[in-house]
Amino acid sequence: MSTSAEPLLRVEDLRVEFATEDGLVHAVDGITYELEPGRTLGIVGESGSGKTVSALSVMGLTRRMGASISGRILFEGRDLLALGEEQMRQIRGNDIAMIFQDPLSSLHPLYRVGDQLVEAVRAHQPVSKGQARERVIELLGLVGIPDPHRRVDEYPHEYSGGMRQRAMIAMALANDPKLLIADEPTTALDVTVQAQILALLERLQGELSMAVVIVTHDLGVVAEMADDVAVMYAGRIVEMAPARLLFSEPEHPYTWGLLRSIPTLQRSREQELEPIPGNPPSLINRPTGCHFHPRCAYAEPEHARVDPRLEDVPGEPAHRVACLLEHQVRRRLWRQMTT
């Protein structure tokens, strides 16, 4: 975001809506972000904030769900939203790959892990089954699956949770993607395994120089992985900053809430965690004005009328926030909270 390199991915004013019986769901409501080659963007938010839908839209996987999509998704300068299904299919799993939250349900229970990976290789490369299998064994070794020659012929239910996610990562890497989208890749895993998977993703990203979009509700994951962070709330990006800055100088009250609801070892036991009050808003009948105002401790009456725009934080061009509070006020509040 700060350098001038050509972005690999540029999402412009992306809107994704679903017509349901209860009304129009505004899942993603005009988000814009850029990602340069080799860098990592973390998209953070609660469930229902639109982070997963925005990621699936980059893969072209929301079309089939009956979504109406507008805006632009420029990948290497090509607008993915303007592509036909067959052109999009050739990009999917090839230039852009994705891994998902629950590796057990994401793997087909009736096929061997190796066969599922072979299929991924052969979907985009004109190689024989034997060649694809060699490649798959190599990939399984790369993601740290022990004894890949034997494991290649096992079924998903014979793998442990961590190994399944490793296999999903291997599948995603099958065609050397330029962009990897990881949707809550560690949420379904044990804590110790989470750390291994994150370390693996970081190592692979370095080795293969991929760009990564990591979608998560876990700020710990973001701190570990991301160069830049976008915080989403009710389908919008409410704050965006380099990761270091987001953790040291967060500007949005929602981000404050996220940061202060993480348990840390430094915090004394008497000091209670501070959850964000209330629930995420309905994406059908969204609050007026600033969507966060019903849950915001600092909201003023006029915040229910005025809709904030994502604007530069004064003096920090890489840091953008959508908040109606004055910059000075926000600075003061955060200082008070942290001292």
Binding site: R92, G93, A123
Partner: peptide
């Protein structure tokens, strides 16, 4: 979804 994400 995985099968679609593979580009099949």
């Amino acid at each position: 979804r995985t099968a679609r994400a593979k580009g099949l």
